[in-house]
Design a protein around this nucleic acid. Structure first.
Length: 418
DNA sequence: AAACGCCGCAACCGCCGAGGT
DNA sequence: AACCTCGGCGGTTGCGGCGTT
């Protein structure tokens, strides 16, 4: 209706003048002017304030948690009319809510296809992998997780995954290992819990992080770590399952006091050399490291074990969609079951290690990222094992030892992302 | 039992882009 | 071309639940 538009335009101009002359503050209590123009609630919200208009007139509208009655009204309306025209919805549905609030309530909570409950392990894998690619594009991530909302994923990331990555010494923004974020005790804990492979995983994370210009690894820290490996080898009885952190710290301190007790075994010398080298641990060195460990009998399968390996800077584009040429180097974290058996490490394809060797100088493509095989036994929509199906502590333990994030092909279609 | 602090999550806020006029 | 509406998005807030002291 053109005449209405013209009328509104004139009204806007009028209001604009009025506003400038009377220092009208749209955020203050409702003024006579606002009440005056409320001939149509849907129009007033846009016209009462120039510049950015509020989604609706908030005066008299309810805020805060939704009641069951309100939910019922909204659900009933949505079932009858479907989504759309959120601005008019509250009035038509008999709700004293902002249209935006209704939309959020529907999309984030009331929508029938929303999957409630805890995130499955596969879902968490997918989230982390997608985040490493897409960054905080929660809606894009949510699009790959049926039944999950962006808000839910965002909250889950901020409250669970982010903290866990930080605890592991992994920058949740870049997904790169960072020594300054690392909780060393987790390394020691992993190690002391008869899981030297896990400790090595963390250690290797430190090593791989040194690809950056300034080495992040404190040599003293690494010396300590390697000392611990030596201790483990020479005093296996010290490393029982029930060894608590307090004892670990004591042991740690005593070793520091004994000080500079470098590993005497050749293998440990090799390890030390690796650590004290140029800090540029590439695939070959990592394999060498694994062979050393393997030779020491820590794990017969270690050659198949793949640590986070980054050949160059760990780079994750924030503007992934805009610049596909940007190199992406991301570690792959391998979650395994917590086991006292250090040989219980995952068997992975031989080429898996190679697939992680992203090199910035080489042509990066999505394929290199997406080539990571999906080995999860269950599909995304399966009733997979819920990571916090047991206690939270168990979950933390379960998730902190070994990490590998792989994307189910069904959940990641590059064309969709693009 | 009360006080306090932490944590998780639902909801809100402000900004933005697409599409329409 | 300019402006507006609408819906979507990411960041942030605030409240309730829970554990600890």
């Amino acid at each position: 209706m053109p005449h209405l538009s013209l009328f509104l335009s004139n009204l806007i101009a009028l209001l604009s003048n009025y506003k400038s002359q009377s220092s009208f503050d749209s955020k203050s209590k409702p003024s006579d002017l606002q009440l005056h123009i409320k001939f149509d609630n849907n129009i007033s919200c846009a016209t009462a304030e120039m510049g950015r208009a509020p989604c609706c007139d908030k005066n008299g509208l309810k805020k805060g948690p939704w009641t069951t009655e309100e939910d019922a009204l909204l659900v009933d309306y949505m079932q009858k009319h479907g989504p759309g025209n959120w601005r008019n919805l509250p009035k038509n549905a008999g709700l004293e809510r902002c249209g935006k609030s209704c939309r959020l309530r529907w999309t984030n909570y009331l929508r029938p296809d929303i999957k409630r409950g805890r995130f499955s392990f596969e879902e968490e894998e997918t989230i982390i992998q997608l985040h490493s690619i897409l960054g905080n594009k929660w809606s894009a991530i949510a699009a790959r997780l049926p039944g999950r909302t962006d808000n839910e994923i965002k909250n889950y990331w901020n409250t669970h995954i982010r903290k866990r990555l930080l605890k592991m010494g992994i920058d949740p923004v870049t997904h790169a290992p960072r020594i300054d974020l690392l909780d060393l005790s987790s390394i020691l804990s992993s190690y002391m819990c008869n899981n030297p492979a896990a400790a090595l995983l963390n250690l290797s994370s430190l090593l791989s992080s040194t690809q950056q210009q300034q080495p992040l690894v404190n040599p003293e820290l690494l010396r300590l770590a390697t000392n611990l490996l030596s201790i483990k080898h020479e005093n296996p009885e010290l490393c029982s399952q029930n060894y608590n952190l307090h004892d670990q710290n004591q042991l740690c301190n005593s070793q520091q006091q004994n000080s500079q007790v470098l590993p005497s075994l050749q293998s440990h010398d090799q390890l030390q050399n690796l650590i004290q080298g140029d800090f540029s641990v590439d695939v070959a060195k990592m394999k060498q490291l694994m062979q050393v460990i393997n030779a020491e009998g820590y794990s017969p399968n270690m050659t198949n074990f793949n640590c986070p390996t980054v050949s160059q800077e760990n780079m994750v584009p924030s503007n992934f969609g805009a610049d596909h040429e940007t190199a992406v180097c991301q570690p792959s974290y391998v979650p395994c079951t917590t086991s006292s058996d250090p040989t219980n490490v995952p068997d992975l394809p031989e080429n898996y290690f190679q697939s992680l060797n992203y090199n910035r100088s080489s042509d990066f493509s999505f394929d290199s990222v997406m080539s990571t095989p999906y080995s999860s036994p269950t599909g995304l929509n399966s009733s997979g094992t819920y990571i916090n199906s047991s206690t939270e502590d168990e979950k933390e333990s379960y998730c902190s030892d070994w990490w590998k994030f792989e994307i189910p092909e069904s959940a990641l279609d590059i064309n969709d992302i693009m």
